[in-house]
């Protein structure tokens, strides 16, 4: 017994010392940026072995809830917190919460149209009309006029949307709300909405699976998902009148185009942003960091991570198919890090 203790004691002491230095930071939230975040946290941990970030991808809604409850050190969300949620947070913590855009994502329209191999063009009016159930045939003039030279069938359009609450849906309906007054008043925006028409598929894979198996259907999926599964998707007309295919460059251009309108709290939607290279159905995804962090070590770690994420971190985005932030946004965010105290 004594012998065992003699052998074990140094290890126990070591473990104790390591525990005293190790900083564990917990976060929770959005699933869309999860592959990027886990890569970042992993790389950052390799560089700073005593700092460990733990991230649970429980969904944006859960992320906002948990950071407000104070059960995690930071949250993450695909849609910015609304004013009520900000007030809730302030009432609980006596200080505010900051939004930090990290990477960007986009939605693309996918379709299954027998006999049509050409890449289709969609105007905002066409997409809103289809998802409102007002445009019901594929050869509707609103679709046809954007696709000269393509013979569209006279068949009924079958709409497919997400059935689970999701940031992907938020981006899609946020865009539709901007291009269609009727969508804004009738349906509105949120992670789940009351869809006027259509079938619901669970997850990106549910939507793409349903579209693949249902002739004459149209749905929307995350750009990364469409690229990684080599799906064909349509071009969308941006506010400058150009039909643009969803791409990482087009998404970054959307943030650059909207940079003048980005407020100091970064709570901004960049769908339908101005600029001729802009892909219009794009969005930021955010980290939610409390303004006041009581634990000095945690505060230093989070600030250091944020600067690293805006620097070397951004170089890792393309490998995972995420669109990096434009320089102007990075500069603006770097300044905002100082607000954490």
């Amino acid at each position: 017994m004594k012998r065992t203790l003699q052998i074990l004691l140094p290890f126990l002491a070591l473990a104790g010392a390591a525990m005293a230095q190790d900083i564990l930071i917990n976060g929770a939230g959005a699933t869309f940026p999860y592959p990027m975040y886990s890569k970042w946290f992993d790389e950052y941990h390799k560089k700073n072995p005593h700092m460990q970030f733990n991230y649970q991808s429980i969904g944006s809604g859960g992320g906002i809830k948990q950071v407000t409850e104070g059960t995690v050190d930071f949250g993450a969300t695909d849609g910015p917190m609304n004013d009520t949620q900000l007030k809730d947070f302030e009432a609980k913590h006596m200080s505010g919460i900051l939004h930090f855009p990290t990477v960007m994502g986009a939605d693309v329209p996918v379709y299954n149209l027998a006999g049509v191999t050409a890449q289709l063009n969609f105007t905002g009016d066409a997409l809103a009309g289809i998802f409102l159930g007002k445009i019901t045939k594929w050869n509707d003039p609103e679709i046809a006029k954007a696709n000269p030279g393509v013979t569209l069938p006279a068949s009924d359009i079958i709409v497919v949307h997400r059935s689970d609450g999701s940031g992907t849906t938020f981006i899609w309906v946020d865009y539709l709300s901007k291009v269609s007054k009727e969508w804004e008043t009738k349906v509105g925006k949120g992670t789940s909405v009351n869809w006027p028409v259509g079938l619901g598929g669970k997850g990106n894979e549910g939507v793409s699976g349903t579209v693949k198996q249902t002739p004459n259907s149209i749905g929307y999926v995350e750009l990364i998902f469409a690229r990684q599964n080599k799906m064909q998707f349509g071009k969308v007309k941006n506010s400058a009148g150009v039909f643009v295919e969803g791409s990482l460059a087009g998404v970054t251009a959307a943030a650059a185009g909207a940079v003048k309108e980005i407020p100091d709290d970064f709570r901004v939607s960049i769908t339908n942003a101005p600029g001729k290279d802009v892909y219009p159905i794009s969005s930021f995804t955010w980290l939610l960091v409390p303004e006041k962090i009581a634990d000095a070590k945690k505060k230093a770690a989070i600030k250091d991570f944020l600067s690293w994420m805006l620097g070397p971190g951004q170089a890792m985005t393309a490998a995972l198919d995420y669109a990096p932030l434009p320089k102007a946004v990075v500069a603006k965010e770097t300044k905002a890090i100082a607000k954490i105290n």
Binding site: I58, G59, S60, G61, G62, I64, K65, T84, Q85, S163, D164, G165, S166, G167, T191, S192, L199, G200, K202
Partner: peptide, 19 residues
């Protein structure tokens, strides 16, 4: 026709439900 069930809607929407 397509439909929905109680258990399915809870599983689909609970994680992202805010408010």
């Amino acid at each position: 026709a397509p439909g929905y069930s109680i258990a399915a809607v809870i599983a689909n929407e609970f994680t992202e439900a805010t408010g």
